Measured scan of single mutants.
Amino acid sequence: EMEYEEITLERGNSGLGFSIAGGTDNPHIGDDPSIFITKIIPGGAAAQDGRLRVNDSILFVNEVDVREVTHSAAVEALKEAGSIVRLYVMRRKP
């Protein structure tokens, strides 16, 4: 069973403070093209906020749908998102 969360982060000097993997051209798990959080960087915006978790998958960055995009398109969406970034994420319920 999945749960969904909308997380708004303010981009810090060091960016959003997380790493991603995945994409249609580089699936992270099997042939699932989802964009997954692979690392939360200590002291970064995501770590300070505390809600984003490793293995969360990002569905939307602001209004941009990143469910079926290449890795570089997801990176671009995050880069272009401005200083306030709304992430709509999905994760397995614990």
Results as ranks from 00 to 15, higher is better:
residue 1 E to K: 15
residue 1 E to W: 00
residue 2 M to S: 02
residue 2 M to R: 02
residue 2 M to H: 01
residue 3 E to L: 09
residue 4 Y to P: 03
residue 4 Y to G: 05
residue 5 E to Q: 12
residue 5 E to N: 15
residue 5 E to D: 11
residue 5 E to C: 10
residue 5 E to I: 14
residue 5 E to R: 12
residue 6 E to S: 09
residue 6 E to V: 02
residue 6 E to M: 03
residue 6 E to T: 12
residue 6 E to I: 03
residue 6 E to D: 15
residue 6 E to A: 07
residue 7 I to D: 00
residue 7 I to R: 02
residue 7 I to N: 01
residue 7 I to V: 10
residue 7 I to Y: 15
residue 7 I to W: 01
residue 8 T to M: 04
residue 8 T to D: 12
residue 8 T to N: 11
residue 8 T to I: 12
residue 9 L to S: 01
residue 9 L to D: 00
residue 9 L to R: 00
residue 10 E to L: 10
residue 10 E to G: 03
residue 10 E to R: 08
residue 10 E to H: 08
residue 11 R to N: 08
residue 12 G to E: 07
residue 12 G to I: 10
residue 12 G to V: 08
residue 12 G to D: 04
residue 12 G to N: 06
residue 13 N to C: 03
residue 13 N to W: 05
residue 13 N to M: 03
residue 13 N to I: 13
residue 14 S to P: 05
residue 14 S to Y: 08
residue 14 S to T: 12
residue 14 S to N: 02
residue 15 G to C: 05
residue 15 G to E: 08
residue 15 G to N: 05
residue 15 G to D: 11
residue 15 G to T: 15
residue 16 L to R: 02
residue 16 L to N: 08
residue 17 G to N: 07
residue 17 G to D: 15
residue 17 G to S: 12
residue 18 F to G: 00
residue 18 F to I: 09
residue 18 F to A: 08
residue 18 F to H: 00
residue 19 S to M: 05
residue 20 I to E: 01
residue 20 I to S: 06
residue 20 I to K: 00
residue 20 I to M: 10
residue 20 I to W: 13
residue 21 A to Y: 06
residue 22 G to Y: 14
residue 22 G to N: 04
residue 22 G to F: 04
residue 22 G to A: 02
residue 22 G to W: 06
residue 23 G to Y: 04
residue 23 G to A: 12
residue 23 G to K: 08
residue 24 T to F: 05
residue 24 T to Y: 14
residue 24 T to R: 14
residue 24 T to P: 14
residue 24 T to W: 11
residue 24 T to N: 15
residue 25 D to L: 06
residue 25 D to R: 09
residue 25 D to K: 04
residue 25 D to E: 08
residue 25 D to S: 10
residue 25 D to F: 07
residue 26 N to R: 10
residue 26 N to Q: 12
residue 26 N to F: 07
residue 26 N to M: 08
residue 26 N to A: 05
residue 27 P to G: 08
residue 28 H to L: 05
residue 29 I to C: 11
residue 29 I to Q: 13
residue 29 I to S: 10
residue 29 I to W: 07
residue 29 I to D: 14
residue 30 G to H: 13
residue 30 G to A: 09
residue 30 G to Q: 13
residue 31 D to F: 05
residue 31 D to Q: 11
residue 32 D to A: 06
residue 32 D to V: 13
residue 32 D to Y: 09
residue 32 D to M: 08
residue 32 D to W: 03
residue 33 P to Q: 13
residue 33 P to A: 11
residue 33 P to L: 07
residue 33 P to N: 10
residue 33 P to E: 12
residue 33 P to M: 09
residue 34 S to L: 14
residue 34 S to N: 15
residue 35 I to K: 04
residue 35 I to R: 00
residue 35 I to A: 08
residue 36 F to Y: 07
residue 36 F to V: 09
residue 36 F to C: 07
residue 36 F to W: 06
residue 36 F to L: 12
residue 36 F to M: 13
residue 37 I to N: 01
residue 37 I to W: 00
residue 37 I to Y: 00
residue 38 T to P: 02
residue 38 T to K: 12
residue 38 T to N: 15
residue 39 K to F: 07
residue 39 K to V: 14
residue 39 K to P: 01
residue 39 K to H: 11
residue 40 I to C: 06
residue 40 I to D: 01
residue 41 I to C: 11
residue 41 I to D: 02
residue 41 I to R: 05
residue 41 I to W: 11
residue 41 I to L: 10
residue 41 I to M: 09
residue 42 P to C: 14
residue 42 P to A: 07
residue 42 P to D: 14
residue 42 P to I: 15
residue 42 P to W: 05
residue 43 G to E: 13
residue 43 G to V: 06
residue 43 G to K: 10
residue 43 G to P: 08
residue 44 G to T: 03
residue 44 G to R: 09
residue 44 G to E: 07
residue 44 G to M: 06
residue 45 A to H: 15
residue 45 A to T: 06
residue 45 A to D: 05
residue 45 A to S: 14
residue 45 A to Q: 06
residue 46 A to Q: 02
residue 47 A to C: 11
residue 47 A to K: 12
residue 48 Q to C: 12
residue 49 D to A: 09
residue 49 D to W: 03
residue 49 D to P: 04
residue 49 D to I: 04
residue 49 D to G: 08
residue 50 G to C: 08
residue 50 G to N: 07
residue 50 G to I: 03
residue 50 G to S: 13
residue 50 G to P: 04
residue 51 R to T: 14
residue 51 R to E: 12
residue 51 R to L: 08
residue 51 R to M: 10
residue 51 R to W: 06
residue 52 L to M: 15
residue 52 L to R: 00
residue 52 L to W: 00
residue 52 L to H: 00
residue 52 L to S: 09
residue 52 L to C: 12
residue 53 R to N: 03
residue 53 R to T: 05
residue 53 R to F: 02
residue 53 R to C: 02
residue 54 V to H: 01
residue 54 V to C: 07
residue 54 V to D: 15
residue 55 N to I: 11
residue 55 N to C: 13
residue 55 N to D: 09
residue 55 N to Y: 07
residue 55 N to Q: 10
residue 56 D to V: 01
residue 56 D to K: 00
residue 56 D to T: 04
residue 56 D to R: 00
residue 56 D to I: 00
residue 56 D to N: 12
residue 57 S to A: 13
residue 57 S to L: 07
residue 58 I to R: 00
residue 58 I to E: 00
residue 58 I to W: 00
residue 58 I to S: 00
residue 58 I to N: 00
residue 59 L to T: 14
residue 59 L to A: 14
residue 59 L to Y: 09
residue 59 L to H: 15
residue 59 L to M: 13
residue 59 L to E: 13
residue 60 F to P: 00
residue 60 F to I: 08
residue 61 V to R: 00
residue 61 V to L: 09
residue 61 V to S: 03
residue 61 V to M: 10
residue 61 V to Y: 01
residue 62 N to E: 10
residue 62 N to L: 00
residue 62 N to G: 09
residue 62 N to F: 01
residue 63 E to W: 03
residue 63 E to C: 11
residue 64 V to K: 14
residue 64 V to N: 05
residue 64 V to A: 08
residue 64 V to F: 07
residue 65 D to W: 03
residue 65 D to K: 15
residue 65 D to V: 14
residue 65 D to N: 14
residue 66 V to L: 11
residue 66 V to H: 02
residue 66 V to R: 01
residue 66 V to S: 11
residue 67 R to G: 14
residue 67 R to K: 14
residue 67 R to C: 06
residue 67 R to D: 02
residue 67 R to A: 15
residue 68 E to K: 08
residue 68 E to D: 07
residue 68 E to Y: 04
residue 68 E to N: 04
residue 69 V to S: 15
residue 69 V to W: 13
residue 69 V to M: 09
residue 70 T to H: 07
residue 71 H to A: 08
residue 71 H to T: 07
residue 71 H to C: 02
residue 71 H to D: 15
residue 71 H to Y: 06
residue 72 S to W: 09
residue 72 S to K: 11
residue 72 S to Y: 12
residue 73 A to W: 14
residue 73 A to D: 07
residue 74 A to E: 00
residue 74 A to F: 13
residue 74 A to G: 12
residue 74 A to P: 01
residue 75 V to A: 04
residue 75 V to L: 14
residue 75 V to H: 11
residue 75 V to N: 15
residue 76 E to V: 14
residue 76 E to I: 15
residue 77 A to M: 02
residue 77 A to C: 04
residue 77 A to L: 06
residue 77 A to T: 02
residue 78 L to M: 05
residue 78 L to S: 01
residue 78 L to E: 01
residue 78 L to D: 00
residue 79 K to Y: 01
residue 80 E to L: 15
residue 80 E to R: 10
residue 80 E to C: 13
residue 80 E to M: 10
residue 80 E to H: 02
residue 80 E to P: 04
residue 81 A to P: 15
residue 81 A to I: 14
residue 81 A to S: 08
residue 81 A to D: 14
residue 81 A to L: 08
residue 82 G to D: 06
residue 82 G to Y: 10
residue 83 S to L: 04
residue 83 S to A: 08
residue 83 S to I: 15
residue 83 S to H: 14
residue 84 I to A: 13
residue 84 I to S: 11
residue 84 I to K: 06
residue 84 I to R: 06
residue 85 V to P: 09
residue 85 V to F: 02
residue 86 R to A: 08
residue 86 R to Q: 06
residue 86 R to V: 07
residue 86 R to T: 03
residue 87 L to W: 00
residue 87 L to T: 03
residue 87 L to N: 00
residue 87 L to I: 13
residue 87 L to E: 00
residue 87 L to H: 00
residue 88 Y to K: 11
residue 88 Y to A: 03
residue 88 Y to R: 11
residue 88 Y to Q: 07
residue 88 Y to C: 15
residue 88 Y to P: 01
residue 88 Y to E: 09
residue 88 Y to M: 14
residue 89 V to W: 01
residue 89 V to K: 10
residue 89 V to D: 00
residue 89 V to Q: 01
residue 89 V to S: 15
residue 89 V to R: 14
residue 90 M to R: 11
residue 90 M to H: 15
residue 90 M to P: 14
residue 90 M to V: 05
residue 91 R to V: 15
residue 91 R to F: 14
residue 92 R to Y: 15
residue 92 R to I: 09
residue 92 R to K: 14
residue 92 R to D: 08
residue 92 R to E: 10
residue 92 R to F: 03
residue 93 K to E: 06
residue 93 K to G: 11
residue 94 P to E: 15
residue 94 P to Y: 02
residue 94 P to T: 10
